[in-house]
Nucleic acid binder design. Structure first.
Lengths: 218, 218
DNA sequence: TTGCTGTTTACTCATTTGATTAAAAAAATT
DNA sequence: AATTTTTTTAATCAAATGAGTAAACAGCAA
């Protein structure tokens, strides 16, 4: 018993090892280009064992996809539904949280977006993300600001698109930064760290009316 | 001869039919998930003929990928290297051009980004995009504005990331607008049309200092 | 006519890939 | 020690898939 616990701390359980490997392979190459044999090899086990645990590639993929999305949306729901933080603070939290997540797992955004394109199935339905978002404190605070005339653009969609675009797009277009911008990994991460504070400022500059009293940029 | 010309006007040449079909299938499903048999069927010809014209799936793909990228970058190079337009006008042109392109071919952005992830090969090297961009009038105008103190953020990368993110991200995340935002196709396109004018205004609000004399939003 | 090119049909072929199985070995549990 | 569970080995299977071929044919041109 004690021995097993030790081993799990060092070598994770086999099931977990397979999941970790599957996450890595699927997220990097997408479902269609991933081979179960590669996943098994990456996990340091054999193909038979993979099917012994997860029955099929499809099943394993759905598992990985689901918890990748949960993981991704948790970043949002956690910060956006807090009654005790202001709208402005939520924007800062969102930017910081998502940038941290993307720095750690840079393949996730493109993975989610490409796989959703090919499988528009009920993947979303399983997630409460939609309702959680639409009834969140964040959305209510946005609407209050619109009503109070503090925000220019009344369409929440534009606001969300812009915010997520500013946060996520650099990670999705990483190859362009590398080749056109000539950025190595350290330089890229440096830029992303800067964006944690820049993005909230940019968002305010785009959407908040001047008379709020905030001197935003500089 | 006349008859052949007629046929080509109506039914495009077979080679062209295959390319059109390949573009559609590859752009929608990506390389790994695309089947040559599907492409042949979509083109209304048989598999043998596809190989007769293009030798292999790989060859056909590279062709499609290359001219998709050329097409995509042309949007940029055309507008960005004109000495007779101001920096501000170039931003407006870029937004309008790219949004038009994406409205017409919504799969292109995600296609390019996902396929580049899996094939970081010399795809870029074949394209002069990098040098065309870095030595463009647009970049020079940006640097002049920075030097003149008219722009807050001296890092061109942030500027480009933001602009492209604002333009492209909504198309990449289309499923989210559909499901979370509840947008149908017409409503989505309406939003994108709005963004042709909104994005230049947002960019100015983010990057241009106030004392430029432009009252930007409203 | 003859000959060339594009095209179809109907196979075949080799490889890859997801999945399964049986038997044995190793490890953990009782 | 006995038993159960996990894991490996090695092999096989069936389906999918990219690619190739040979024979026939239609259309057009010389």
């Amino acid at each position: 018993m004690a021995k097993k616990a030790e081993n799990e701390a060092i070598d994770a359980s086999t099931e977990e090892k397979i999941k970790v490997a599957a996450r890595a392979v699927f997220q990097k190459k997408g479902y269609a280009a991933s081979r179960t044999r590669d996943i098994a090899q990456e996990a340091g086990i054999n193909l038979a064992l993979l099917n012994y645990y997860f029955r099929s590639k499809e099943k394993l993929f759905e598992l990985i996809m689901f918890d990748t999305m949960v993981n991704f949306f948790q970043c949002m729901t956690g910060a956006l539904d807090d009654k005790n933080t202001s709208f402005e603070i939520k924007i800062e939290l969102l930017a910081a949280n998502y940038i941290n997540l993307c720095v750690e797992f840079p393949d996730i955004p493109l993975f989610i977006l490409s796989e959703i394109r090919n499988r528009p199935e009920n993947l979303f339905d399983k997630l409460p993300a939609r309702h959680l978002f639409r009834s969140s404190v964040f959305v209510r605070q946005f609407q209050e600001k619109v009503a109070a005339g503090e925000i220019n653009e009344p369409d929440l969609l534009h606001f969300v698109m812009n915010m997520l675009g500013l946060i996520i797009f650099p990670f999705i277009s990483r190859p362009f930064s590398r080749i056109i911008g000539g950025l190595n990994d350290a330089q890229f991460e440096q830029l992303m760290q800067e964006r944690k504070t820049l993005i909230p400022a940019w968002i305010k500059a785009m959407f908040f009316k001047e008379n709020t009293g905030n001197e935003l940029i500089k």
